[in-house]
Every structure is written in C-alpha cells, then in structure tokens.
Amino acid sequence: MTVRFPDDSVDGFPAPPRTATDRESRDIRYRQAKHEDRDALTAMYLDFDPEDRAQGIPPGDESGINEWLDVVMDEDALNTVARHDDSAVGHVMLVPDRDGASELAIFVLQGYQGAHIGTELVRTALGLAQREGLECIWLTVERWNRSAIALYEKIGFERTGDDSFELEMSLRLATPE
C-alpha cells in the first residue's frame, strides 16, 4: 500500500528518556525499549484485554506474542516503552515499510488508559523517531475508534487514506535544516 504524507511537517516532540506524571499522579518513565525490556513487554501483552486488540494484534497467546515481538522489535525498528515502577504499561512501535516510511502502533494497558499516557507515549516515540532521522510516519486505525483518532489528530496526524474499513493517517516529522 502506498501512503500519502502531508506537505507540512510537525515539530516539537520530546525525545526519551523522560518522566511525566499521569492524571492519576503516577510517575511514568518513557524510554527507548531495548532487549532488556522484552520480558516486561511480553508480560504486558499477556495481561492485555482482548477487547483492545486492533486488526489482529497483539496476538492472544504467549508464542504468538513472542513471534510478533520478534518482528516489531527487530533492530531496524524503533520501540518506546512506558514504565510504571517495574512494569511495562504502554508500548509504541515504529516499524519500517518498504518505501522508507514507518508504521506506528500504540498499546496501553487497560488500567493505565485515560490518564494521558497514550499521548505522552506517542509524542515521545515521535521525538525518538526525529532524533533517529525518520520523516514519514503512518498508521491505520479502526473507524469506530474515535478516541484514538482524536488523539492522533491532536498530535498532528492527518487523515490521508481512501475509504476502507480502517482509516489511514500520516504525519511528516520536521527534519533538521
């Protein structure tokens, strides 16, 4: 699939690592996810409510989760994790496509939703992407998922896809002069 990107770029995203207090007064640490975060992420996805799956991911069982994490945590991909104490509570992945752009997805554990973590996590992942020199980011989201669409629009994503089951949105990151 060929994705169209907006002409105007978006700037001002914070790079990891950073800490921010969520709406429930929890200190959430945002940082680039590396191999040592793998077990915590597997545990997070084992805890994941099937209701929050999007287009078939995350997979429902441990072997499926591990196979999928092998793909999204490949060395070409950029991963950002939100941690509360020792647990992973949110994860953003940026996985390169064949056209030099990257696909983004975010998952936040149920008990941590609605606390502004999703917004901070996506913004931090985009800060990391900017630092690593990425420019074109896209995602798909189910049409009925209005809260997610609103979150992406607030961050600066635009709707760029044609009509289908999923809505396609994309964003152009500002690059250094």
């Binding site: 996985v95 696909e103 289908s164 089951f165």
Partner: peptide, 16 residues
C-alpha cells in the same frame, strides 16, 4: 488481504 509491516491485518477492497 495483507499484513502490514507491524503485523496488522489489512483487508483488500474485494474482501470488504
């Protein structure tokens, strides 16, 4: 249908 780079299922227009 296709699988996106990060593993999402994407239906093609025929399936839809």
């Amino acid at each position: 249908g296709q699988t996106s780079p990060l593993g999402k299922i994407q239906f093609d227009p025929v399936i839809e």
